[in-house]
Amino acid sequence: MSTRLRCAAILLWVAATALAVEPGTPAPDFALRPFDATSPVRLSDYRGKVVLVDFWASWCAPCRQSLPLYEQLRAGFAAEDFAILAVNLDEDAADARAFLAQHPVKYITLQNPQGDIARAFGLKGMPSSYLIDRDGVVRERHVGFEPADIDTLKREIAALIAQGRHAS
């Protein structure tokens, strides 16, 4: 085997075994700057709430559908202990801003052009969302997006909100 091919094999193996955040494991904490503010937002600031972390980018085709529906989700659960943190992965923030101007959302949108947070979560596809319970544990992971997924998500969020009340 040539050195070059061996390098390729090792790289592929590393890629395949990269740690992914699975349901049941604690979500990696992060501090990221929002588009419309200067001070960073931490995931751990939302401990005690059910949090949906959504990784998206302006070039991701399903995101044209997911952002408006997540905005409806936010509005529907506005009175509950629930928050959406959207992590944008565009290399150029201008692309993301243009997209947000077209598809405005009221939930928090954070910038991660380096993609290190996406790497920490071990994203398997775009978009990806992680539903995190009040204790900061990832409970559900969704790869890709279809409009029908929103019903599943609603049920899962409602169940997690209900569980939290239970424990308290």
Partner: peptide, 9 residues
């Protein structure tokens, strides 16, 4: 899951 929500509510 629906029943769980009703139980909590």
């Amino acid at each position: 899951d629906f029943a769980a929500t009703l139980h909590a509510q």
